[in-house]
């Protein structure tokens, strides 16, 4: 290939800049969040006393599995220790997905990491919730044009609460936790149920990104 041809080729490529509106519209294929009101755990009308008490216990005892991706992992120690003290809400770190209730995803997810996160999420026991942290999980954030990070987490996992910010400060994290507590008390935090109901849709999206799909059928190992 001679040099002139290469220069022509390069000039066609737009390496820097904002995508045009048409390009973005083409990319917004079937972007409808699946879990808005469909994932209710229990209806208000049929809410029993037992369920009320259980929800009370659930919301005040959140075992958090912090999946420390990206820069958000540094906000978690600040949130948990003396200054902001998330333990007063009953939050507590869980070491393994078996014991955890909340999966806290703290930043961008590369496709390589997404595979591990999905496995972690599927090993958790119901009822389980996902808190997505930072603008990277909402729309890609500053990694919107990266070749290796996903842009919107809720196409691959059901997200109960988003915490916006880059990075969100510990106050915002606590705000998100309180929001999740409210959802749990009302019986609206049904991400796990939603995931089961729409598993085909989620699997389709996941397999689009994760090319070498070698997941186990069940997690009894």
């Amino acid at each position: 290939m001679d040099n002139n041809k290469n220069i022509e080729q390069v000039s066609k490529i737009k390496t820097i800049g904002i995508p045009t509106q048409e390009e973005i519209k083409q990319a917004q294929i079937d972007f409808s969040p699946r879990c808005t009101s469909a994932g209710r755990v229990n209806d208000k009308e049929t809410q029993k006393m037992v369920e009320y008490i259980m929800n009370f216990a659930r919301k005040h005892s959140l075992f958090v599995l912090a999946y420390g991706t990206g820069c958000g992992a540094i906000e978690i120690p600040a949130t948990m220790t003396s200054r902001y003290d998330a333990e007063r809400f009953g939050m507590r770190g869980a070491a393994t997905p078996r014991q955890a209730d909340v999966l806290l995803i703290t930043g961008y997810l590369s496709t390589k990491t997404l595979k591990r996160v999905i496995r972690v999420y599927e090993q958790m026991q119901d009822p389980k919730y996902v808190i997505a942290f930072g603008s990277c999980t909402i729309n890609g954030g500053m990694y919107f044009d990266s070749y290796n990070t996903i842009n919107a987490l809720d196409r691959y996992l059901p997200v109960d609460v988003y915490i916006a910010g880059c990075m969100p400060r510990p106050e915002s994290v606590i705000n998100g936790i309180v929001k999740l507590q409210g959802l749990i008390q009302n019986g609206n935090a049904g991400g796990g149920k939603c995931y089961k109901d729409n598993l085909d849709w989620y699997r389709e999206n996941q397999q689009k990104v994760i090319k070498n799909w070698d997941f186990p059928d069940d997690y009894n190992w």
Partner: peptide, 14 residues
């Protein structure tokens, strides 16, 4: 083209 690849593979949010 990283951006084109991202738009094709990872859906963006409006």
């Amino acid at each position: 083209d990283s951006q084109k690849y991202a738009l094709e593979n990872f859906a963006t949010r409006p």
